[in-house]
Structures are given as structure tokens and as C-alpha cells.
Simulated assay, not measured.
Amino acid sequence: MTSTDATAAGPRRAGVWNLPNVLTMIRIALVPFFVWFLVADAPGLHSGAGPWRWAAVAAFAVAIYTDKLDGDIARSRNLVTDFGKIADPIADKLLIGSALVMLSLLGELPWWATLVILVREWGITALRFFVIRYGVIPASRGGKLKTVVQTAAIFLYLLPLGAFAPWLVWVAFAVMMAALAITVWTGVEYVIEALRLRAKGRQAGTAKGQEP
């Protein structure tokens, strides 16, 4: 096939094995190491502040950076794939979810905060699949802000702040409360958007059925 033929055939679809997807898989692979680092630093699941805790902080930071990097590369090099669309949010939820659960197990974060975030995250994911036949719920600015604030809150909680400046623990708590507020707010927004999308889809289906 000549270059002219290739151009006429349209752009070649990106394969699964590309750099953004590899970065996503690395992020998923980092999750068990991240969890192990936290457990290794906290025998008996009591909060620790040793070298393994710092290893967990580093693993979380690297994983978060790969999240930004894979998205930037995929968009700039036209390497967006169906696999990436599915795997990327799963990787994010695994990382955030494992961090929240571990912080609660260590007694550093109230379980109710973890449950609110997890129920919202997985609930909205299920909602997206439920209404996908009517259309796709796009990511909102609030949703992106939620991710940033959640990440910042978790990162602050992971840092052994109490060993250096106990008052910074309250800063971490304040950021987490902000993350919770945005999480709930954006969750309600997505539910409203899903209901609108479903209503429009049903109206369109009814109108189509009434056409002669």
C-alpha cells in the first residue's frame, strides 16, 4: 500500500500496546506495592512514619504522575484507545480506593469519609454504564476538580505530618473535607445529568416510534 492509499484509508488506529496504556498498566501494578509499603511500615496496622511510609508516598506520587502523563501523551499523539478509556479510570479508582481504605485501616482517616467517596465513585461508574445506551456522561469541570482535591488530600494524609508539625494534620483534614464536599456535589450533578440524558433518550425513542 502506498502512502497515498494509506492516507485515503484514513488514520491508523492506535494499538493497545502504546506508551499511554503501558503507563496505565504501570499505575495498576504500583497499587499492590503501594499497599504493601503502608503495611510494612505499620505492623499491626498502626500508623507509622518510617522509610516504608515514605516509599508509599513516593509510589503514590509516581502513580499520580503517570495518570497525568498518559493522558497528555494519548491526546497529543492521537493514541487514545478503547482499552485506555476503560483501564485509565479503573486504575485511578484502584489507586484512590486502596489509599482511602488503607488510611482508614491505619486509623488515620474516618471510615465514613472513605465510604462516602467509594460509594460515590463506584456508584457514578455504575450509573454511566446504566445510561450508556442513551449517551455518554461527559466529565465535568467539577469532576476534574474533585480528582485534584481528592489526590491532594490523600497525599497530605500519606505524609507523616504528625512527626514534623502536628498542626498540618488539621490542614490535611480540611482539604479532605473539601474533597468530600466536592465529591458529593459532583455526584449529585452526575445523577441529574444522567436523568436528563435518560429522559432525552426516551423522548427520542418515542418520537422515532411515532414516525410514519
Rank of each mutant, 00 (worst) to 15 (best):
I192A: 15
A152S: 13
R120N: 06
I117D: 00
L94P: 10
A194V: 09
V149C: 07
Y134S: 14
L109R: 10
A126R: 11
V175Y: 05
A179N: 01
A163F: 01
E108D: 15
T151R: 00
G142H: 07
D88I: 02
M102Y: 08
M177F: 05
L118Y: 12
L158I: 03
L197C: 08
T151K: 00
L103S: 14
A199I: 03
L159T: 09
I90N: 11
L180F: 01
R120S: 02
A178C: 07
A153T: 08
I96E: 02
M102N: 10
L105M: 15
S104D: 12
F130L: 13
P166R: 14
A113F: 05
V171C: 06
W111D: 15
Q150R: 02
R198M: 12
Y157E: 01
Y134H: 15
L115C: 06
I137C: 01
V184K: 02
W170M: 02
S104G: 14
V119R: 02
A165R: 08
A153I: 05
K200M: 13
E108Q: 14
A194N: 11
A99T: 12
A199R: 14
T147Y: 02
V184A: 09
T147M: 13
S104W: 09
P166V: 08
T151E: 00
L159C: 12
L161P: 02
L168Q: 10
A153L: 03
P89S: 02
V136Q: 03
T114E: 00
K200W: 14
V184L: 11
R198E: 15
V188Y: 11
G123L: 01
A165H: 09
V131Q: 06
G187K: 00
L159S: 06
I90K: 08
F164M: 06
L106M: 10
F129R: 06
L109Y: 09
K93S: 11
A194L: 08
V148E: 00
G187A: 00
I96D: 01
V119Q: 04
L103G: 14
F129Y: 14
K93A: 13
L161S: 10
L195S: 11
G187S: 01
V136N: 00
L195I: 13
L180G: 11
Y134M: 04
A113T: 14
P138L: 04
L161G: 09
E108P: 01
K146T: 07
G142S: 08
K144S: 03
T125S: 15
M177A: 13
A139H: 06
T151I: 06
E193D: 15
V171E: 01
L168F: 09
I96V: 15
L168P: 04
G97C: 10
A139K: 02
K93T: 11
P160T: 08
G187P: 02
G142I: 04
W185Q: 00
E189R: 07
I137E: 00
R196Y: 06
L180D: 03
P110Y: 09
D92H: 10
V149A: 03
I182D: 00
W112N: 06
L195Q: 12
L105V: 13
P160I: 06
V101M: 12
E121Q: 08
L109F: 08
F173P: 00
W112G: 07
W185M: 06
I117Y: 05
R133S: 15
R120D: 00
M177C: 09
